[in-house]
């Protein structure tokens, strides 16, 4: 049985072999992006959120979301998942 790499394990992936890297894509982060990053940073310093928790909960996203959401939308999904799992906030808060 051939081992299928996980979706985030992109090193050497032939799927993107013919996709050029677009060096001109240099847009700065928008306000949403900066705010997500800032919330993550405060939670990290309060010992409520580690980089490994962030990574794991991004890697757990369904492939549709993993390749469909913007970069910082994925971060937000990860922060939310961890904060709910730890009981810091509830789903009712976010409904």
């Amino acid at each position: 049985m051939t081992e299928v790499p996980l979706k985030h394990d992109l090193g050497g992936s032939p799927r993107f072999r013919c996709t050029p890297v677009e060096p001109d894509d240099d847009a700065p982060p928008n306000d949403f992006d900066k705010r997500v990053d800032a919330v993550r940073s405060v939670l990290r310093d309060k010992k409520l959120f580690t980089v490994d928790e962030m990574r794991l909960n991004i890697e757990r996203l369904h492939e549709t979301e993993y390749f469909g959401l913007t970069y910082y939308e994925k971060w937000l999904r990860s922060v939310v998942a961890v904060m709910v799992a730890k009981g810091v906030v509830s789903w009712e808060d976010l409904a």
């Binding site: 072999r17 996709t19 677009e22 894509d25 240099d26």
Partner: peptide
């Protein structure tokens, strides 16, 4: 902040 291309699937794969 990292540029978008650094986070792109194409850069990471290739």
């Amino acid at each position: 902040y990292p540029p978008h291309w650094y986070k792109s699937a194409a850069y990471r794969a290739r």
